[in-house]
Design a protein around this nucleic acid. Sequence first.
DNA 1: ATCCAGGCTCCTG
DNA 2: CAGGAGCATGGA
Length: 309
Amino acid sequence: MIQRRAFEIAPAPPYDFALALHYVRHAHTSILERGDETIYRRALRLAGRDVLLVAHATGTISEPRLQVEVAGETVDDAVLAEADARLRHIFTLDIDPAPFLEVAMADPVFARVAAPYPGLRPVLMASPYESLIGAIIGQQITTAFAAKVKRALFDLAGRSIEIDSVHYPLLPEPAEVAALDPAELLARQFSRQKAATVLNVSRAVASGELNFAALSSLPPDEILARLTQHKGVGRWTAEVVLMRGLGAHDAIPAGDVGLRAVIGRAYGLGRHATEAEVRARAEAWAGWRGWATFFWWHQVQLERVARSD
DNA sequence: ATCCAGGCTCCTG
DNA sequence: CAGGAGCATGGA
């Protein structure tokens, strides 16, 4: 039997869930989400239970509400509490965007990217581990190819739940990934280094040597230092985890090619900005560089979607 | 074929 | 510390 329980979230306004769903739907990094224009669906392991989260918006942008349903074999209070916390984290629901918008408006170039979307807010990965695996796989390859490789990894691990005759894929547990045969990954278009790195960090997470809950209470620089001690995890990967996995408002992966390209275009350089130039520009968004990164990536996505139409 | 893509490591100077 | 060679993958 499937249990279903519902609750409501009141995000800090202004908030436009449709913009978040648009981002999720078109992001190559979204592998496990099964949303459409109005509904977000995602299977997750919460409080030790595999469940499906279903969310849709009601209300208005200035008085937003999210209606959430949790379905699974066991949906107890602990599961419900984690579902609430996780959604607030993924969609950055509890943060007042006003200070960010103020910073954004002070930079005329960035304002053109941010101002049209006052109801948009960073969409994070559902867990730090997921962001780490995704970032490692995404190193130095196109987002489309990275999506293909990630999908292959999740298929290989093969975890899913079935609700109403629909199978929803689940993120494999770190221990399950760690137990995979590297040859299986190489056969699925992993490079040797990426296969080794994914297996090694999964082992570290499974053993508790790498503990994101403990990490998250440390200063950002310390988190970066800890993460980059793992071979195959460089500054870019660590900054992506910090920003999109842990939700650090001010973390920016300034070496990112996409970011360098869009910033080069926006500021009329006629070429990719260098990492140093990105960091210099980003001083203007201090305190909110993670949010700014998300808005730039959103801009990149809008341009890509426009081209493909 | 050549260049590029949401890099990393290791080795020079 | 900065810069760059070499590495690994598939796609345009």
